[in-house]
């Protein structure tokens, strides 16, 4: 960085990047300096929230994809209370409901994201949108181990979320082999279904 005229500094950037920024600035009918200033301000704002611009962009994209999937916000406490009351009377029905909803969502993701890393995207969705404390989806094309941790999810919530994930992965060609569920803790093992391949689907 080099000192410029009073109150300005000069940032050194690759020429190609500077040219592309100039094109955008012209399109928006602002000066290049003003455009760069607005970018830096937003980068600093993101930094205050503890993320990079890249992370914020990835999250934005995820939220738009989720919006297309018909996702909305609801108070967690209301959901938990409803779940525990409804689960007592209609547990089987709820498990099927969540599994089928997961299957739909899995098909939606395949359609929307195409060749992208669907498992990686799903991991991020579980982390950010379901507010899980820990999430991991580890394995390969043949076998997958899903681990979830949440310090606030009830036993019923954990069970139903596991059914939802099972539905999603079913749409992605994985069959559930076994699961271990405790309140706020789930480990589910999946195996690739025979006849499935990433290319075929």
């Amino acid at each position: 960085m080099i000192k410029g005229v009073k109150d300005t500094k000069l940032l050194v950037v690759p020429a190609e990047l500077a040219d592309r920024l100039k094109e955008v600035a012209v399109r928006h009918r602002v000066s290049l300096a003003a455009y760069v200033a607005s970018i830096l301000r937003e980068a600093l704002r993101a930094e205050e929230m503890g993320v990079t611009l890249g992370e914020a962009l990835n999250l934005y994209r995820m939220m738009e994809i989720q919006r297309g999937a018909g996702v909305l916000q609801a108070p967690r406490t209301a959901l938990q209370s409803l779940l525990s009351k409804a689960y007592r009377e209609a547990g089987e029905e709820l498990r099927n409901l969540w599994f089928e909803a997961g299957r739909w969502y899995g098909r939606y993701l395949k359609t929307r994201l195409g060749d992208e890393n669907l498992i990686g995207f799903l991991e991020e969705v579980l982390r950010h949108h379901w507010n899980l404390d820990e999430v991991s989806l580890r394995g390969d094309d043949l076998e997958l181990l899903v681990s979830l941790v949440s310090f606030t999810l009830s036993r019923e919530g954990t069970e139903l979320l596991s059914c939802y994930i099972s539905g999603i992965l079913h749409s992605l060609g994985f069959r559930e082999e076994d699961r271990s569920i405790l309140e706020g803790l789930a480990r589910i093992r999946f195996k690739r279904m025979p006849g499935w391949s990433l290319k075929a689907q």
Partner: peptide
Amino acid sequence: REVVDKRWMLERARGLGLVFAPERLLYEM
């Protein structure tokens, strides 16, 4: 600005104890 605002939205939602839920699931429950 919109991108960073959305990030704020997610933090705010978390702070308010809101979660994202598939709407069809939520409505049916």
